[in-house]
C-alpha cells in the first residue's frame, strides 16, 4: 500500500521557485533516501509534507490528502526529526520526549511509549537531566526519542545524524532499520552521506535545483553519471580516494 504520494509539488517564496513539479511515491516498508546538493529543496519538501509551508500540487498520505488533516491527526501518522539548533528553556529530557505524545491525548500507553523511546536511543539514564546541559549528539537523540514516542507510520528524518559521532550514527541507522521492520511503516530520509544512502536506502530520489533528476533503486539513482551531472564532481572517485586512505594504515 502507498504511504506517501507526491504529485506535481511546487513551492515558491515570492518569485523564487524552490520546488518545481516534483513527483514520487513511497510504499510501506520502504526507506526512501532523498539526496541532492545544498539548495536542492530537500528540507523544503519535508517542510511541505509536515504542513510547514504552502505548496501547489498534491500530497497524499495513506491515500488521503494532507490538506484535509487536522494537525493532531497528521502528527499521529507522520513524525518529523528536523534539523535544529537548541531548546530555549531548561526542560528535562523526559519533558521533551513527552511532547511526542501530544497528539495522542490522554492515552494510557503514553508512559510506556516514552520509556521505550528513551531506552531505544540510550537516554533513559538522563531522563531527568536538563536539555541545556546535553551535548549536540545527546540533544539529537532526545529529539529522535520524541519522534519514536510519537509512534507514527511515516518517519521523516532530515539529516538525522548531523551531530552524532560514528558510533551513534551507526546505532541510529540500525535503530531506524529495526523500527521499519514493523509492517505499515515507511521512512523518508534526507542524507548528505551518499554511502549511508546506498547502505540503508531501499529507494532514492535525486534532487537538483528543485527538480527530480532521477528516482528508483539507490544504485541506479546514485550512478556515476547522475552524480556527476548533479554535484558537478566525480563523487565515486572522490569517495574511493577517501576510503583508500584506510588501506594505507
Amino acid at each position: 500500500m502507498s504511504m506517501l504520494d507526491i504529485e506535481n509539488l511546487g513551492v515558491a517564496y515570492g518569485p523564487l521557485k524552490i520546488l518545481k513539479d516534483v513527483s514520487f511515491s513511497l510504499e510501506e516498508g520502504q526507506w526512501l533516501m532523498l539526496v541532492g546538493p545544498n539548495g536542492a529543496g530537500k528540507s523544503t519538501l519535508i517542510n511541505a509534507v509536515a504542513g510547514g509551508t504552502a505548496y501547489t500540487g498534491r500530497i497524499r498520505l495513506q491515500g488521503r490528502d494532507i490538506t484535509g488533516m487536522r494537525p493532531r491527526e497528521r502528527a499521529r501518522r507522520v513524525g518529523v526529526l528536523a534539523q535544529r539548533s537548541g531548546v530555549g528553556y531548561a526542560y528535562t529530557v523526559e519533558d521533551v520526549v513527552r511532547l511526542g505524545r501530544y497528539a495522542h491525548g490522554r492515552d494510557p500507553k503514553n508512559a510506556a511509549h516514552i520509556h521505550r523511546a528513551l531506552v531505544q536511543v540510550g537516554m533513559e539514564e538522563k531522563r531527568d537531566q536538563s536539555v541545556l546541559t546535553l551535548s549536540g549528539g545527546e540533544l539529537q537523540r532526545t529529539f529522535l526519542a520524541q519522534v519514536l514516542a510519537q509512534n507514527p507510520d511515516l518517519l521523516i528524518l532530515d539529516e538525522p545524524t548531523n551531530h552524532l559521532d560514528l558510533k551513534y550514527r551507526q546505532q541510529v541507522f540500525e535503530l531506524v532499520g529495526k523500527w521499519l521492520q514493523t509492517p505499515g511503516r515507511a521512512v523518508l530520509c534526507v542524507v548528505h552521506d551518499l554511502s549511508l544512502a546506498l547502505a540503508y536506502g531501499t529507494c532514492a530520489v535525486l534532487l537538483k535545483e528543485g527538480r527530480v533528476m532521477d528516482r528508483g533503486v539507490p544504485k541506479k539513482v546514485l550512478s556515476r553519471e547522475n552524480l556527476l551531472s548533479t554535484y558537478d564532481m566525480d563523487v565515486a572517485a572522490w569517495s574511493r580516494r577517501m576510503l583508500g586512505q584506510w588501506n594505507d594504515m
Binding site: A50, G51, G52, P71, R72, E73, R74, A75, R76, G79, V80, A82, R84, L99, G100, Y102, A103, F143, Q146, V147, Q150
Partner: peptide, 8 residues
C-alpha cells in the same frame, strides 16, 4: 517547528 511536528 517542533510544536507543529508533534501536532499542535
Amino acid at each position: 517547528e517542533n510544536a507543529r511536528h508533534v501536532g499542535v
